[in-house]
Write a protein that binds this DNA or RNA. Sequence first.
DNA 1: AAACAAATTTAGACTTGTCTAAATACCGTG
DNA 2: CACGGTATTTAGACAAGTCTAAATTTGTTT
Lengths: 220, 220
Amino acid sequence: MQTSTTEDYLKAIFKLSGPSKEGVSTNAIAEELSTKASSVSDMVKKLADKGLVNYIKYQGTTLSKEGEQIALHVIRKHRLWEVFLVEKLKFGWDEIHEIAEQLEHIKSAKLIDKLDEHLGYPKNDPHGDPIPNKKGEFHTLKKYKLNDLSIGEKSILIGVSEDSKDFLRYLDSIDLKLGSSIEILDFFQFDKSLKVLVNQKTERTFSELVAKNLNVSKEK
Amino acid sequence: MQTSTTEDYLKAIFKLSGPSKEGVSTNAIAEELSTKASSVSDMVKKLADKGLVNYIKYQGTTLSKEGEQIALHVIRKHRLWEVFLVEKLKFGWDEIHEIAEQLEHIKSAKLIDKLDEHLGYPKNDPHGDPIPNKKGEFHTLKKYKLNDLSIGEKSILIGVSEDSKDFLRYLDSIDLKLGSSIEILDFFQFDKSLKVLVNQKTERTFSELVAKNLNVSKEK
DNA sequence: AAACAAATTTAGACTTGTCTAAATACCGTG
DNA sequence: CACGGTATTTAGACAAGTCTAAATTTGTTT
């Protein structure tokens, strides 16, 4: 069983190695975790001893298969808790990260299963990022900004870019939430605003600024 | 800000000092926390330095006002999370303690406020123990076993003594949960069973064994 | 009051993770 | 290819909390 520090390191390395799984520099990890390079140097050595990372002196660090599984599992927990905080406890999308950073370290597989079920098996967190399943698999469904779509296209809201209090309150007020459907009805070149159909029932007009901040996936 | 170890010590001391607030022995704390007396001895000294406990060598430890506030706050968090686990995630009442032990250390006042609200401001945890309010105050409403009541009395279910899986599943199946009302309609001496009215609508018969395991408070 | 057992404290060591300061390796430029 | 600067690692120290083993205190019993 890992300490929460171990989990933080693995998560940081996962994040930094990106889709191409490049080796991550000691300094980058230090930066990400707000710690010193010397501490990281010590720590990755220990993680390597435990088989969680591959580490070659002066050359950077990558996750082992096992380390990656753990990282993905922590990310799963983090994102599920974020959904909980927004959907159930009505937190603003800008307040949740810090709390989820703590909740992600709670140890109980059953808790996460039940939470997942309670939330209706969400596929994305409130920022639109995909939630890995139990096995650590996830589908990066392609993320678009609403104003990249064409007239007639249907989409699902999967997150926001800008998550200021005000913006979130606005979304709330028009009953737009994660999973809501948005269909593009019309586009007005003169101010780049959009006429849309929300949840298959309400017509609205979105300014360019609003549309730009809505992350959606194309439906079907 | 306290570490979670500090919170565990304060909670243990609170629990052990009981209603009369007696001094707690080093050995008792060690036992409660599954640690060694020497560790406790070290630790209470540090807690005393921080003003969280009053400690006199060889004489035992009591909580300071501040230490008690912290302990009560941790207990509040623990019990609210227990309610969440049972009411929202449908955990059995026997599985929640261990998970709540972790959740109670999450730091965010706002989280607890929102959780409290989400749960409908419960007054008791699933075991029937009172949940302190934000200020650390709580009302110990008197706890009875259902079979201590007399015919005609009305009560509210506040917890169970025996929390085996089977028993909990049984309660679930008859829609009996925390806060449910139970009125005593009749008592049968020959087998000590009770006829009751659950939630003001369903008549049921409880065996003595069942009745004995239901903790209730008298209504009004 | 002396002696003994139990409870408690002290001393010294260990683990995890962190830091600063110093040493070393790597790499691009001239 | 040597130089200098940056990245990285090493060395040594520290804080929190724990442990074992030894020393001390307490309190009970005679």
